[in-house]
C-alpha cells in the first residue's frame, strides 16, 4: 500500500458533540448528588442507601456511568491519536481502552443494581 496521509473519516462532529453532551449530563448528576448530600441524604448509611435505590436516582446513576465512559472514550482516544503514530499500536490502544471502559461500565452498573 502506498504510504499516504489520509484524513476524512467523517466522524469528528458526532464524538465532539457526544463529549459535550455527556459532560453536561455528568455536571447535572454532580449537582444532583451535591444537593442530595446537603439535604442530608448521606447522613447515615441507611438514608444514603435508600436514596441511591430510588428508581429515578438509579436511572440517573446509570446515565452518569454511561456518560462518564463515553466521555472518557473520546478523551482517551484523542490522547492516543495525538501521541501514538503507528496505526497498529493505535488500534490496539483503542481496543484496550474500549474494553476497559465497557468493563468498567458493566461493573459499575452491577454495583448500582445490586443496591
Amino acid at each position: 500500500m502506498v504510504n499516504r496521509k489520509i484524513v476524512g473519516a467523517h466522524y469528528g462532529l458526532k464524538d465532539w458533540l457526544a463529549q459535550r453532551i455527556t459532560g453536561v449530563m455528568m455536571a447535572i448528576y454532580a449537582v444532583l448528588m451535591a444537593v442530595a448530600l446537603v439535604s442530608g441524604a448521606g447522613s447515615s448509611h441507611e438514608s444514603w442507601k435508600e436514596f441511591m435505590s430510588c428508581g429515578l436516582v438509579r436511572f440517573a446513576s446509570f446515565l452518569f456511568i454511561v456518560s462518564l465512559c463515553w466521555h472518557a472514550w473520546v478523551g482517551v482516544r484523542d490522547i492516543w491519536m495525538d501521541y501514538i503514530q503507528p496505526a497498529g499500536i493505535k488500534l490496539v490502544m483503542h481496543v484496550l481502552t474500549l474494553s476497559a471502559l465497557i468493563g468498567y461500565a458493566g461493573w459499575a452498573t452491577q454495583i448500582i443494581w445490586r443496591l
Binding site: V7, G8, A9, H10, G12, L13, D15, D78, M81
Partner: peptide, 14 residues
C-alpha cells in the same frame, strides 16, 4: 464543512 468533518482536520482543536 464536509472537508473539515474529521476527527483530525478540525476536531484536534481542544
Amino acid at each position: 464543512l464536509d472537508n473539515l468533518e474529521d476527527p483530525y482536520r478540525l476536531f484536534r482543536c481542544h
